[in-house]
């Protein structure tokens, strides 16, 4: 597991990535690049559902609370 994560991180963040100039960021500025769904409230619903039905959490930000755990 640690080996796999290390390899992924090295590939993603290695020096082989080139510096992106401000005028080359048109694609990066799109809403579709910022979130995995256009429906941001829907993502909150889902995160709360997974929190209520599964035993693990974290990794998607620091805020968020409430139970609804029946």
């Amino acid at each position: 597991m640690k080996f796999t994560i290390t390899i992924i991180v090295l590939i993603l963040f290695s020096g082989c990535t080139k510096e992106i100039k401000p005028w080359e960021k048109g694609m990066l500025a799109k809403d579709s690049m910022k979130s995995s769904s256009k429906n941001t409230i829907g993502k909150k619903f889902e995160e709360h559902m997974f929190f209520s039905k599964e035993a693990s959490k974290g990794g998607s930000g620091i805020s968020g609370g409430g139970c609804g755990c029946n």
Binding site: L12, T17, E24, K25, G58, I62, S63
Partner: peptide, 18 residues
Amino acid sequence: NTQLTYAQNISQNATASI
């Protein structure tokens, strides 16, 4: 809850974070 995130644009059309 604590979280440390490093994010990087890795090309003109790709981003990644850990």
